[in-house]
Design a protein around this nucleic acid. Structure first.
Lengths: 197, 197
DNA sequence: GTCTTATGAATGTGTATTCATTCATTTTTT
DNA sequence: AAAAAATGAATGAATACACATTCATAAGAC
């Protein structure tokens, strides 16, 4: 078995276990069991429990950023770009529920218990939104008075919270796609410059 | 010293300690020290560590709900009600930074590690938003096509994420009031019915 | 036969919770 | 009014246990 296989297996197992129990309640032995390796093997690939979480963040968010950049960069209309971002984000959370739970929960905790760790990948992801706003403002489509720094957080927060509760709750009165559509509609028509169609 | 004083002192100490270290990393002895009581005293007022956190949620969110209901119920215009909700939420997070951190972090974790605990107070808080939307739709001010269940989450998520990062980050390029204003502006103009002023 | 990778039992640490004891206050007895 | 008895809030050292990490040993690769 190649080295990289074990690394991936452990990361995947960690996603499952962290999603089920949360980072602190998850035991290394749980992850080992899930990955079908011995407890000690984990320490051949990661320095410690935190390191698994951080690697998981970096690698998984890295993939997401690549995808979303690829998708939005195909578009030129900033309104469409926001729609694509919203839809992609929500669909991702639906497809990868376990990963979604881990990112949503532990991302917030991580600032706390790992003082030194600044989640730069996450910042990069959210900055895709502010770049779209900036572009829209330059093109005169979005209001100049908008603060991109506020908008990116508000937009991300709206998507994140909606998908978080969608994933947690067992019954859904709306689909992920509907929610993404509603949210991007609200935001887009809320930020149009005067006199835009 | 009256009994109720100790209860309050411990809750306040817990807010400080949980905000600083997070729930799992916080030690009972830290809370005891902060509250200036003995470790054992805490168990005269709370069943266990979780119980402190849950009591904290219930009591503090309870207060917030009372306040926000009082404020919004004075208004009749649903647009103004949303503005008030946004401003009040953001100002609260600014005024009570430690409480804000605890609510924002641990509220999300809590579903995970306390399976039995459903945070009904929190649901009640967010439902204030959907009630406003419903009212606005009945009055013909907001679009009928809006799903109040999506809107409440999106609106809350936007406020929550923006205030979360505002509280964490040391330098602010915008004030809390500006952010609240921008967010309610975006949402309100994004959800107006056709032909509304 | 050497080098790499994997194992899982053993170790050690950290800390939630318990409980025997203290002590200030209140109640009862004289 | 003083003394004795009862109460229960508060203490913090002792307990008990969970679990991250280590490391001597084994298995596998070449």
């Amino acid at each position: 078995m190649r080295t990289s296989d074990k690394h991936t297996k452990i990361i995947e197992a960690a996603i499952t276990v962290f999603a089920r129990k949360g980072f602190f309640s998850a035991r290394i032995s749980d992850i080992a069991k899930e990955a079908q390796v011995a407890d000690g093997t984990i320490y051949l690939y990661f320095n410690n429990k935190y390191d698994i979480l951080i690697s998981l963040f970096e690698e998984e968010i890295g993939k997401i950023i690549l995808e979303v950049k690829l998708l939005t960069e195909k578009e030129t209309d900033p309104r469409k770009m926001l729609q694509i971002f919203a839809l992609h984000h929500m669909q991702l959370m639906e497809e990868k529920k376990e990963l979604a739970e881990v990112l949503q929960m532990e991302l917030r905790q991580s600032n706390k218990f790992m003082k030194e760790y600044r989640n730069t990948k996450f910042i990069e992801y959210v900055d895709v939104i502010s770049a779209i706003i900036h572009k829209g403002q330059e093109m005169g489509v979005f209001r100049k008075s908008l603060l991109p720094g506020v908008f990116k957080r508000a937009f991300f927060g709206a998507l994140d919270e909606t998908s978080r509760l969608w994933v947690l709750s067992p019954d859904h009165s709306y689909t992920i796609d509907e929610a993404a559509q509603q949210i991007s509609d609200i935001f887009i028509s809320g930020i149009m410059a005067e006199g835009q169609p």
